[in-house]
Design a protein around this nucleic acid. Sequence first.
DNA 1: CCTTAATCCTGGAAGC
DNA 2: TGCTTCCAGGATTAAG
Length: 290
Amino acid sequence: MPELPEVECVRQRLAEGLRGHQIKSVLVRRPDYIRFQGQRCGPVHVGSGPKSKNLLDALLAGTSKLQLLRHGKQLALWATDRPALALHLGMSGQLLWRDDGPPGSHTHITWTLDHGRHLDFRDPRRFGGVWCFASLEDLQQQRWTPLGPDALTISDALLRSQLAKTTRAVKAALLDQAVLAGVGNIYADEALFAAGLHPLRKARAIKAPAVAALAHAIRETLANAILAGGSTLRDYRTPDGSPGRYAQQHAVYGRADQPCRRCGESLRGIQVAQRATVFCPQCQRYRRTK
DNA sequence: CCTTAATCCTGGAAGC
DNA sequence: TGCTTCCAGGATTAAG
């Protein structure tokens, strides 16, 4: 469920704990959560043979000066002249610091650092994963090239050219990571509301001024969500275990049939691209009333 | 091109 | 209380 703001908060908090430290060991409890050399790992990879040594190296055992990048909802953990790891949280993924005691349920991988703290990757639903690459360049080439531009810094002009590529409903386009990377179901609805755009408007037909308003709304909504620590609906936590506070500010997501905070009209719930969608029929008219 | 449905999973909430 | 059904922040695939 984590979208761009949640992933960015995780990146920032994780980077603080990694700065100046080294990974001492890696423990893999679920090898099939990891893709190594293009395929899912099996028990042989976490045994004692040469394959397990390769995997531990790929998982950055012994590495220091770690850096953490983000594009859309994806993270890259790497260090100069070392392998790179793509981390994706899927719907229920969490990266959590742990001092002592047992890890939470569904903790598939644990990195232990030289300061003694553990970094747990837990993901009950297992829609997320870890992908191993020989270098950051390989990771970017294979996993980030197919993605559209990052939503946090999307320019008016770039959003316009991206939306011009498709005739789909604008909400469906926003959810497509190849069009724009980082927006999911929460922030698509929130940004469309902030821009006053109906979710079913055809992406290609939206005029330049309205696209500019949407680009601005996307940047502002995501930035504000990051400042609030992200949206916690249920599972999401920052690595220190604290929930995000942005859900309190949601104008439309999860508020079907409740009054619009701007005009008081009852918010409508519909389906767009198989996803629950909420909008204000008054503030987000399909056609401008002029 | 587009949309829809099914799929990968667990678990919380709602309904009976 | 217990059982069943539905739903969820994501993303890919196949089919129509």
